[in-house]
Write a protein that binds this DNA or RNA. Structure first.
Length: 827
RNA sequence: GCCCCGGUAGCCCAACGGCAGAGGCGAUGGUCUCAAACACCAUUCAGUGUGGGUUCGAAUCCCACCCGGGGCACCA
């Protein structure tokens, strides 16, 4: 005990955490009131998947997110800050197979663990709105939405070559194939021809793209760019090439109709139905052999751009619509079956791929754009006048020679349209969203297949269509959904004719679940629809969405699509779900991503036990700009804790009474407080939280100095400063802030104390230091009034002895005055 | 190959085109201590990746290059 007295005061981190959690539970300071008269703000953060306990990544994103949410509360807004779980998905299913149990066991146990951890971590979530996408009360409405989308023609089934993950034994959406590998497990993806459910996201391609312009100022540039690339709009033309012995022409899509005179062959995707149909009997054997060869290749081999071009002559010829020339038609794997029309006009002079193909196959090469002087490349696709269009001496119905690329394009399209052999067209890289999955732990697709009536929707009143009870070995991947084997569940009567029918046995991609959860939060217990339309209109769009950039084209694109459809259904009055967005970096260690194999993982639990919640949160927020990665090895949570103790100590030193008016207190400290509060607000609003923390540190230092060697602890300015510190700190370190607030004589909770008022007069300095430069070098400093005129400041500068000496009698050529801070004299 | 973002002190990071330093970490010295830890006080260190340009003035704007990170990449 005697030791204790000689030591500086400090608080017991553990005890303070235990002390305040039940108080906050009692006060419920972050319950969002739908009917509040305050202005509303919606703070959204990406909900987690329940795999194990929370880790450093969760700690970072929620700490950053909470700064904004708590700031809004302090500023007097009614804040909706909900949290839930994206609780369908493969890890639970794989765990269930391993442990011979039900996926729900793993899922809900982990949710409970994470819930408890979030609570201890002190994030200002409104837990009354908690949801789980695997609850029947939730997925009932996912099924409802699917059926509504289907009624609008936006959900449909088709047979098509699809991405197949041989490891997870399920199909994947395009967005889930990364570099030819399964986004989830890394296995090489193969192709399969399957009949699957799709959402018609392409119907919204144009709007999904154009609205990005409006989002650009408030969304991270990399997300906007990624979505633009993914949607991939291009302008060009469809051109028809007549084929001998076939009624229908081959239609190609090209972005360079102006190069049509250089079309010396045609290429069709080898895996397209068109190629199989066009091939002549004489070439059929060669074609089928080639096709077999290509089918054996993996996506990774196929996507490699530097391998030689291959193909096979289909034996037919087509007619170039502008030259009338007969050109050969080939099949190849470098043309994609599912982009454009699956057929391309081969222009080796203008397209490097066609150049390579023509070179390998010995096909004619004609340049149709004048190459720049000294050009020694192969195909040329830059600017320049059209040539050989037509070639000298050739008589053609169209002549575009000499036209620049843009004009030549337009002239060609005009001609083709007049002639009825083509038209201008827009194409998108975006494909429809494949949503079926051949796995168990997801939302059952509410469709019944009847031999007589075909696809029949499960009647709305029968929703939710719940999953049958399957566990352990029943869930093993077999290439078809585990649901297909649950005959009691699958075999049903057709709702239309009453005859024998089968349920669709696939489940939905879990990205469907997460495409609308932010709407459910607005009325999580609503039973008459997926969400209460009026409440969604009141809260939406989310004012901020904080989360990882890995969802740049997955979740964020799907959620935008759902929002637009729901708007068109009259259920929302916004077409974009997220007004602004913040992507946090990741937490790494020793320059590398944390991983088991590297053994450099940092346990959140251990860090919290060692330094406490506030110090860990502060460290994450203070580390740097939120978008930057944090190398935990470079961080000092111990230093954060020291700072928090220092701040807390201020609250014990204040001797004035609570409620003491700050007016009349030490002016220097009052100015420091005003500046800190003013700057902190601006910094939070521009997501520069690390700088905001630095401002608070500055104020703590200034207050310490004032107490020890300045105006002393009784000065009202000291109380004002300490209270401002507590309130600002409440955004980052809620436990410490609460403890300070109590020691300052206030009742909980500091989280709702309100942002400190700033007297604008205190932000105006009495005098400022003006710098006088000669030739850009500082030669003198002057104390001047902040509103000094330019002329006065120039006069003051030019008579200053140091300036006079520096000028040394040389003629002054020019004087630049930036009142009140700077004068630069040029001699 | 193309497109973004970044490069400031030993380290993490600040700096409306205007004195290169707000804050933190570390290090060193001091106060306190028998000594140490803690705490407090003080000090230390770069001319902003490289080379040009614009400007009275450039870390900041422009060009080229180097390094690091990310995205896209047979989409016709």
């Amino acid at each position: 005990m005697s030791e204790q007295e000689t030591q500086p005061e400090s608080y017991d981190v553990e005890a303070v955490q235990e002390k305040w959690l039940p108080v906050w539970d009692e006060l419920q300071p972050f319950r969002a009131d739908d009917d509040s008269a305050r202005e509303k703000k919606y703070a959204l953060t990406m909900f987690p998947y329940p795999s194990g306990d929370l880790h450093m990544g969760h700690a970072e994103v929620t700490a950053l997110h909470d700064v904004i949410a708590r700031y809004w509360w302090q500023r007097g807004y009614e804040v909706l800050n909900p949290m839930g779980w994206d609780s369908f998905g493969l890890p639970a299913e794989n765990a269930a197979i391993r442990n011979d149990e039900h996926p729900a066991t793993y899922t809900y146990a982990n949710i409970e663990t994470q819930y408890e951890s979030f609570k201890r971590y002190g994030i200002s979530f409104d837990w009354s709105r908690r949801l789980h996408t695997s609850d029947p009360e939730y997925y009932r409405w996912t099924q409802w939405l699917f059926l509504k989308f289907r009624e609008r023609g936006l959900a449909y089934r088709k047979s098509s070559p699809v991405n197949w993950c041989p490891n997870d034994q399920t199909v994947l959406a395009n967005e889930q194939v990364v570099d030819g590998r399964c986004e989830r497990c890394g296995a090489e993806v193969t192709k399969r021809e399957l009949t699957q459910w799709y959402f018609k996201i392409t119907e919204y391609a144009e709007e999904l793209l154009s609205e990005l312009d409006r989002l650009e100022p408030t969304w991270p540039a990399r997300v906007v760019t990624a979505q633009r690339n993914w949607i991939g709009r291009s302008e060009g033309a469809h051109v028809d090439f007549a084929v001998s012995g076939r009624d229908e022409p081959i239609t190609v899509y090209t972005t360079r109709p102006d190069t049509i005179f250089g079309t010396t062959f045609m290429v069709v995707a080898v895996d397209s139905a068109l190629a199989a149909e066009l091939v002549t009997d004489g070439q059929r054997a060669a074609f089928e052999a080639y096709r077999e060869e290509i089918r054996k290749e993996t996506e990774i081999e196929r996507l490699s751009t530097d391998r030689p071009k291959t193909g096979v002559d289909l034996g037919v010829t087509a007619t170039n619509p502008v030259t009338g020339a007969q050109i050969p038609v080939w099949a190849t794997d470098y043309v994609l079956a599912d982009y454009g029309t699956g057929a391309v006009m081969g222009v080796p002079g203008g397209d490097q791929r066609d150049w390579e193909f023509a070179t390998v196959m010995g096909l004619e090469i004609v340049r149709t754009t004048q190459t720049p002087e000294g050009y020694d490349g192969e195909a040329y696709n830059g600017e320049g006048p059209a040539i050989n269009s037509p070639a000298p001496g050739v008589d053609a119905p169209l002549d575009i020679n000499g036209l620049a690329v843009a004009d030549a394009k337009r002239a060609t399209i005009d001609f083709l349209e007049q002639q009825g052999s083509g038209q201008g067209a827009v194409n998108f890289r975006l494909r429809d969203w494949l949503l079926s999955r051949q796995r168990y732990w997801g939302v059952p697709i509410p469709i019944i297949h009847c031999e007589k009536d075909g696809e029949v929707a499960v009647p709305y009143e029968q929703l939710p269509l719940e999953l049958p009870e399957l566990r352990g070995a029943d869930l093993k991947p077999k290439g078809v959904s585990p649901l297909a084997a649950a005959s009691e569940w699958v075999d049903v009567e057709c709702p239309t004719c009453g005859g024998p029918a089968k349920r669709d046995s696939d489940t939905m991609d879990t990205f469907v679940d997460s495409s609308w959860y932010f709407l459910r939060y607005c009325s999580p217990n609503y039973t008459d629809g997926p969400f209460d339309v009026e409440k969604a209109k009141a809260w939406m769009p989310a004012d901020i969405y904080v989360g990882g950039v890995e969802h740049a084209v997955l979740h964020l694109l799907y959620a935008r699509f759902f929002t637009k459809v729901l708007r068109d259904m009259g259920m929302l009055d916004v077409g974009e779900p997220f007004a602004s967005q913040l992507n946090q970096g990741i937490v790494i260690n020793q320059g590398r991503k944390m991983s088991k194999s590297l053994g450099n993982g940092v346990s959140l639990g251990e860090q919290l036990a060692a330094y406490g919640v506030d110090a860990v949160r502060l460290t994450l927020v203070f580390a740097g700009p939120p978008e930057d990665d944090i190398d935990w090895a470079d961080m000092s949570p111990a230093g954060s804790l020291r700072f928090l103790q220092r701040a807390w100590r201020l609250s014990g030193d204040v001797t004035s009474e609570p409620g003491t008016a700050p007016e009349g207190g030490d002016v220097a400290l009052r100015r420091a407080t005003a500046h800190a509060v003013h700057d902190a607000a601006e910094l939070v609003e521009s997501y520069r939280f690390n700088v905001m923390v630095a401002r608070v540190m500055e104020l703590v230092n200034a207050t310490r100095k004032a107490i020890d060697s300045g105006c002393g602890p009784a000065d009202p300015a000291v109380r004002e400063a300490a209270e401002a510190v507590a309130i600002m700190l409440s955004l980052v370190a809620p436990f410490t802030a609460e403890e300070m607030w109590e020691r300052l004589g206030h009742r909980p909770t500091v989280a709702r104390a309100g942002w400190p008022a700033v007297d604008p007069a205190l932000l105006v300095e009495e005098s400022v230091t003006a710098v006088v430069q000669i030739q850009g070098k500082v030669r003198a400093r002057l104390e001047v009034a902040p509103d000094v005129s330019e002329a006065d400041l120039e006069q003051l500068a030019l008579v200053d002895p140091a300036v006079v000496k520096a000028i040394d009698g040389r003629p002054v050529r020019k004087v630049i005055v930036r009142a009140p801070k700077l004068v630069n004299v040029v001699v």
